[in-house]
Computed example of a mutant assay.
Amino acid sequence: MNTQLEEIREQQKATWNKFSAGWRKWDDFTMDWLRPMGEEIIRSLHVKPTDLVLDVAAGTGEPGLSIATLARDGKVVITDLAEGMLDVARDKARARGIRNYETVACDVCELPFPDETFDAVSCRFGFMFFPDMLLAAREMQRVLKPGGRLAAAVWSVPAKNAWITAIMGTINRHLELPAPPPGAPGMFRCGSPGMLADLLKQAGFRNVNEREVTGKLRCGTNEQYWPFMNEVAAPVVAALSKADEATREKIKRDVFAQVDQLCQDKSAALDYGTVVVQGEK
């Protein structure tokens, strides 16, 4: 990996460690919201009781911990760049009495496992942040056993994700933030139909297919939506850090107005769209 990609990796490690406290605070709410994508990943993997499964970029432990309850005579290795996120995963595993797992802090582009180790690999909302997505896919393919399965979820296009565009669009209108470089890690980097599927094919996966999973982020009120986004969504915090207090308050009022326009019943239930891609080695 070149120096520029290493710098991106280290920046992301610092960011996710910084936000691990927010993810711990909101974990029950967040995991309930993201559960449909995890369930689709699990269905795609056809987990057997004796499987050895790798969960990449698992953050606070999902879908890896749920997979561990299915691979009860096997094991799940839960990986992430950020030790702070893995701390939450370990605490959750203890609370749920899950023992057939281990956590490993590592970079997906340099997985510390031998060839053909795992029966399955899962990755929920990691691919779009990997500095080198093709190298990451090839590493996942390398550590899979022949016939092993990969399933990954990514965010779809901005138009299908009002939960984040409602706030980021408003911030951008106020602050006129510069657009990220083309292809830079970010939320919607893998959103175009077929993008991640084509990447997996390049990495050597076969029988690749994708399906859309949609739903709503149900916050209940604007007063719940605003702190959630400010404590969990790194792009929001990074952008708002560039605003003074008066501008932040104006952005907040405009975000509330935007959410109310989208949710006229004042429920702050905002659409999300995702793509789940699966393939075999």
Score class of each variant (00 low, 15 high):
residue 136 A to Q: 05
residue 75 K to T: 06
residue 135 L to H: 11
residue 62 E to F: 04
residue 72 R to H: 15
residue 19 F to P: 08
residue 22 G to V: 07
residue 32 D to I: 10
residue 7 E to S: 12
residue 25 K to M: 12
residue 59 G to R: 06
residue 138 R to L: 00
residue 96 R to G: 07
residue 43 R to I: 08
residue 47 V to F: 02
residue 131 P to K: 12
residue 105 A to Y: 04
residue 129 F to A: 12
residue 66 S to K: 06
residue 57 A to C: 12
residue 36 P to V: 09
residue 5 L to E: 13
residue 137 A to V: 00
residue 62 E to A: 05
residue 41 I to M: 08
residue 5 L to K: 14
residue 136 A to S: 14
residue 12 Q to K: 11
residue 109 C to I: 04
residue 139 E to K: 01
residue 73 D to I: 03
residue 71 A to E: 03
residue 112 P to Y: 04
residue 62 E to Y: 08
residue 39 E to A: 13
residue 119 D to R: 04
residue 48 K to Y: 09
residue 69 T to P: 00
residue 32 D to K: 14
residue 22 G to T: 09
residue 73 D to W: 05
residue 12 Q to D: 09
residue 57 A to H: 01
residue 90 R to L: 09
residue 10 E to A: 07
residue 37 M to N: 15
residue 92 K to H: 14
residue 49 P to H: 10
residue 32 D to C: 09
residue 108 V to Y: 01
residue 19 F to R: 11
residue 49 P to T: 13
residue 51 D to K: 08
residue 49 P to A: 13
residue 135 L to K: 15
residue 116 E to Y: 06
residue 119 D to Y: 04
residue 94 R to L: 14
residue 139 E to Y: 01
residue 33 W to N: 12
residue 18 K to I: 06
residue 141 Q to K: 08
residue 92 K to I: 12
residue 87 D to N: 12
residue 66 S to C: 06
residue 141 Q to H: 15
residue 120 A to C: 08
residue 48 K to M: 14
residue 20 S to G: 10
residue 122 S to V: 05
residue 107 D to S: 09
residue 118 F to Q: 00
residue 121 V to R: 01
residue 70 L to R: 14
residue 98 I to E: 01
residue 111 L to G: 01
residue 110 E to F: 05
residue 66 S to L: 08
residue 18 K to G: 08
residue 129 F to W: 14
residue 39 E to C: 08
residue 79 T to K: 03
residue 110 E to W: 03
residue 39 E to F: 06
residue 112 P to D: 03
residue 44 S to L: 14
residue 7 E to A: 14
residue 125 F to G: 11
residue 44 S to E: 15
residue 101 Y to W: 05
residue 82 A to F: 02
residue 49 P to V: 12
residue 45 L to Y: 04
residue 72 R to I: 15
residue 130 F to D: 01
residue 69 T to W: 02
residue 130 F to A: 04
residue 115 D to L: 00
residue 3 T to G: 10
